[in-house]
């Protein structure tokens, strides 16, 4: 380091450039850390796309999309309970005692049925224990499966489509119109209702766009989603 004189310590010339470099560096590091936290730690990054390998490669696309089985055939409590139950082996065997009885892939099902145990499905949409979520409250008030689970009727493998973060919940509770429909339309045949183009939407309902229709539904049903802490954290 070359100081101007032995006694006076005054910054050398290169310090002017050094300061600029340091400022740019510090700003980039701060910016990088912000981006890292905002995107890297966000549930959009960490949780979306979670698709564990299930004991049986069950396809919703086949059962719902092609065969048109109602959600409630398997998830029997979804419109009556806070939780949406996963079917027991018996429910599966209603059909599979006759269909594909010798499929290798269904071996774990037959095993479970024989032992009287459920198939050990792996939970995909796992909310924290401090969150209270009620399926029936949403399903019976016009929030379709699609809003949280995406096009489950086209899903070969179930994966987490939405971040399920608190801000994501709040987005909908503050602006529910994009997700509200007539509760009668909460069924597989209307699965893609939320993503219809305005002209397609016209075929079903008398509204110019999705949000107008949602507002209409909210008005008719008196839906005013709460955003208090105690709504979900009880």
């Amino acid at each position: 380091m070359s100081w101007n004189s032995p006694r006076q310590v005054i910054f050398p010339k290169w310090f002017d450039i050094a300061i600029k470099i340091v400022v740019v560096l510090v700003l980039s590091v701060v910016g990088y850390v912000h981006l890292l936290v905002a995107y890297g730690f966000s549930p959009k990054t960490t949780d979306v796309g979670y698709a564990p390998e299930q004991p049986i490669p069950y396809s919703h696309a086949l059962h719902v999309g092609e065969l048109g089985i109602d959600c409630r055939y398997c998830h029997t409590g979804v419109d009556r309970n806070s939780y949406s139950n996963i079917p027991t082996a018996q429910t599966c065997m209603n059909c599979h005692s006759k269909v594909k009885t010798d499929s290798k892939l269904l071996e774990p099902l037959r095993e479970a049925f024989k032992e009287g145990k459920p198939v050990e499905w792996i939970k995909v949409h796992d909310l924290p224990d401090y969150v209270y979520f009620n399926h029936s409250a949403h399903v019976t008030r016009g929030v379709g499966c699609q809003s949280c689970h995406g096009r489950i009727d086209q899903a070969e493998v179930v994966s987490q489509i939405k971040p399920l973060s608190m801000s994501w919940c709040l987005d909908c509770h503050r602006h529910p119109e994009a997700h509200l429909r007539n509760p009668a339309q909460v069924k597989p045949t209307f699965m893609g209702f939320d993503t219809l183009t305005p002209s397609e939407l016209k075929k079903f309902v008398n509204a110019d766009n999705r949000d107008d229709y949602g507002r209409q539904v909210a008005k008719d049903l008196g839906i005013n989603p709460p955003t208090d802490c105690s709504t979900c954290h009880r």
Partner: peptide, 16 residues
Amino acid sequence: LRDRATSRVRQIAYGF
């Protein structure tokens, strides 16, 4: 203080 400092540490610290 920098200009009066006699020790190197002080010269650099006050100088900075």
